[in-house]
């Protein structure tokens, strides 16, 4: 299952907004039992670690860390955000 983050906006910042996005994903996009969740950054202008942390933490908690996979991206804000989140 692929989550296209651009559907949440082109600028993704703030923890409250990330929390709301995570809840919406859990409500409307549920993966099959053996399906991975791919996080797609294509089309996003900027994403901050606070927003992304809320989304990834919630999805990892709900479905397991090994099933939540961030697709490769050249977006520098995504790269830097993942660097602090996963450090």
């Amino acid at each position: 299952m692929r989550i296209k983050l651009k559907r949440f906006g082109s600028i993704l910042t703030s923890r409250p907004a990330g929390r709301e996005a995570a809840l919406a994903i859990k409500a409307y996009q549920r993966p099959d039992a053996d399906e991975n969740i791919e996080i797609d950054f294509e089309g996003v202008l900027s994403v901050g670690p606070s927003w992304l942390d809320e989304v990834l933490s919630e999805l990892r908690r709900e479905f397991g860390s090994s099933r939540v996979i961030c697709l490769p991206t050249k977006n520098p804000s995504a790269i830097e955000s993942l660097r602090v989140i996963d450090s």
Partner: peptide, 20 residues
Amino acid sequence: EDDLPLVISVVGEVGNNSFD
């Protein structure tokens, strides 16, 4: 071009800290 996403996310983090 590569700096714009970083500037926006930095301002977003610092600005949202004020509210948090």
